[in-house]
């Protein structure tokens, strides 16, 4: 609120400094927002591809396991699944995209060869192999989708935050600062005008007093040389 600011020259300078900083920040944030949106669009394309691949892999895996359960029996499929306790390992690192920290997910031991799946080769069938293959691919797609979609979500949050900051600067902070600046400038100008008026008044009063004093001293004394007023 402009009325809350003390209309001093010091405050005016401080506000001018803040305006300069805010305008610079606004420009930078605007550039960041535009950059983030461009990066986001790239990630969005990638996320759409990954999501459609994920859906496709899910359909395939589901159809393969349905077929395996139908032809080999649920008991055989569950048995083959129970023959392995080892879980895939997932490690996360982070990378920086325009100041946004996004995860980078590395997975290992997702894809397994026939002799690493736990179930014996001699007593199993290609249906179980293909179901296992399809689920391994699905798991890889899920991990990739998790990475891309988390990055997308984080980018979106950052874009939202940046947009809010840009809007706050553009529609709240900068207008307030301009208003304060204008208020202080007006107040200072007003004070200046008042000061000049007061000085004039004092000067006029002084001159009147001097004139009255001279008149009291009498006509024999030579009148002093008159000095023209400044304005």
């Amino acid at each position: 609120m402009a009325e809350d600011v003390k209309p001093t020259r010091k405050n005016l300078m401080a506000i001018e400094d803040r305006i300069e900083l805010s305008e610079r920040g606004h420009d930078t944030l605007e550039q960041k927002r535009d950059g983030l949106i461009m990066e986001f669009m790239d990630i969005l394309d990638q996320a759409q591809d990954v999501r459609s691949q994920l859906n496709q892999d899910y359909e395939t895996a589901q159809s393969k396991i349905n077929m395996a359960r139908a032809m080999e029996g649920d008991v055989a499929v569950r048995g083959a699944a129970a023959a392995l306790k080892e879980h895939p390992e997932i490690t996360t690192q982070s990378k920086n995209i325009m100041g946004v920290v996004v995860p980078q997910i590395e997975s290992s031991r997702v894809k397994k060869s026939l002799d690493q799946r736990g179930y014996g080769l001699l007593g199993s069938s290609a249906r179980i192999d293909e179901a296992a293959d399809a689920y391994e691919e699905l798991l890889e797609s899920i991990i990739l989708a998790a990475e891309v979609e988390t990055a997308m979500k984080k980018m979106l949050e950052e874009i939202e935050t940046t947009k809010r900051r840009v809007n706050a600067l553009e529609f709240k902070l900068l207008p307030d600062l301009y208003e304060n600046k204008e208020y202080i400038e007006q107040k200072l100008e007003e004070q200046e005008r008042e000061e000049i008026f007061r000085l004039k008044k004092i000067k006029a009063k002084k001159e009147e007093e001097e004139k009255a004093a001279r008149e009291e001293e009498g006509p024999e004394t030579t009148p002093p040389e008159t000095v023209p007023a400044d304005d």
Binding site: A83, L84, D115, Q116, R117, Y119, G120, L121
Partner: peptide
């Protein structure tokens, strides 16, 4: 640590 050798041995015996 995987069951493959045991499963294969059982099937092979059969």
């Amino acid at each position: 640590g995987v069951l493959v050798p045991i499963e294969n041995a059982l099937d092979r015996a059969y």
